[in-house]
């Protein structure tokens, strides 16, 4: 951490004046250093050719420091993963902070460092950015927005329209870990666990899979907020129109869930299918490559727990149906507002 004559963020740091300059010079620019950022232009000039993916996401998480990561890592990995899910190879990110007055400089620095590490790990450059400070009470310590640009993988052909009956559904790793790790440190709800968030950049793994399986990969999604259940329902709903209407079958027994996560879910009466993930993706692939795909994925970073968890079917279009361990079939529906008890 650079030596500074202030240790707390104040409103002045977002005013565009000297304090801002100090903050940026001492922290952001130096740490995130790269030729494009170094120009200090109002915007980055990029030289792109070919199909390009572009995405943005805002990160608000309570608490911003949690077991296994920080809001900074989420902000990089989240946007990187969104690009990867499009079948793109992430290249450039923008980075904007909204800081709450009173955030300590050491906290801010820790976030910056985690951003730097995550960006390096993902192999992306941060090429433009912004910082604003809001009055105490008008934010929650730190909010981050990132946007990302990536070049489409030449073999990628990913869209919900390519999902076919018979396709297999694969999950790349243990589900619900991130959400339960966050919940265990959430204010007023802390419980003891050794769980760590699974936040991770998935782009290298996805790129290898695209190199090897190309268009046999029909769809990629990262089941973040709302969990696996929500993403699968979105897919089923999107494909509940048109000539081939589809639904999704999943097997409870095949779902990879860490024992400790399962225990925490039971403790809170939560279904792991609805709990958020960060370093996990879902792939829908042609049935004939599914076994090989999973086998390969298990050898790649973040893929060791990968498993086939279900299949695409025409039996119940628009619906996601889970076969329980004891053989009953339950509809996994979209969450409607707050979780209300249903049992009479």
């Amino acid at each position: 951490m650079p030596k500074l004559d202030f240790d707390v963020i104040t409103l002045g740091h977002g005013s565009g004046g000297t304090l801002t300059h100090k903050l940026l010079e001492a922290g952001v620019f130096d740490l995130l250093k790269n030729p494009l950022l170094d120009t200090h232009h109002d915007g980055a000039i990029l030289d792109l050719t070919g199909k390009t993916a572009f995405t943005t996401d805002s990160y608000v998480i309570s608490p911003p420091f949690f077991p296994g990561g920080t809001i900074g890592e989420l902000a990089v990995n989240g946007t990187v993963n969104d690009l990867a899910m499009c079948g793109a190879i992430p290249r450039y990110l923008s980075l904007s902070f909204i800081l709450e007055e009173g955030l300590t400089m050491s906290e801010f620095w820790a976030v910056l460092v985690s951003i730097k590490t995550a960006a390096d790990q993902a192999g992306v450059q941060i090429v433009t950015g912004d910082t604003k400070v809001v009055e105490r009470g008008k934010g929650d310590r730190i909010f981050i927005n990132t946007a990302g640009i990536g070049m489409l993988h030449p073999k990628a052909d990913i869209s919900v329209g390519r999902v076919q009956p018979g396709d297999k559904l694969i999950v790349s790793g243990n589900i619900a870990t991130h959400g339960m790790a966050i919940m265990s440190v959430r204010e007023g709800l802390e419980f003891e666990t050794s769980l760590q968030s699974d936040t991770a950049p998935l782009n290298h793994t996805v790129r290898t899979l695209l190199d090897e399986f190309g268009p046999a990969i029909h769809l990629l999604r990262d089941p973040t907020r709302g969990g696996v259940a929500t993403v699968l329902n979105e897919i089923a709903r999107d494909r509940n129109v048109g000539p081939t209407r589809i639904g999704i079958d999943i097997q409870q027994a095949s779902l990879p869930v860490l024992e400790e996560v399962a225990g925490a879910c039971e403790l809170l009466g939560l279904d792991p299918l609805y709990v958020a993930n960060e370093g996990v993706f879902l792939a829908i692939v042609a049935a004939d490559v599914a076994e090989r795909f999973v086998g390969r994925l298990q050898t790649l970073p973040y893929g060791e727990s990968a498993a086939v968890i279900g299949r695409v079917t025409t039996e119940h279009p628009g619906q996601v149906v889970l076969t329980s361990r004891i053989g009953g079939r339950r509809v996994v529906s979209m969450l409607v507002g707050e979780q209300l008890p249903r049992i009479c």
């Binding site: 809170l268 009466g269 939560l270 979780q339 209300l340 008890p341 049992i343």
Partner: peptide, 8 residues
């Protein structure tokens, strides 16, 4: 009312 359907 706690914990959704776990309570009943």
């Amino acid at each position: 009312a706690l914990l959704g359907d776990k309570m009943p």
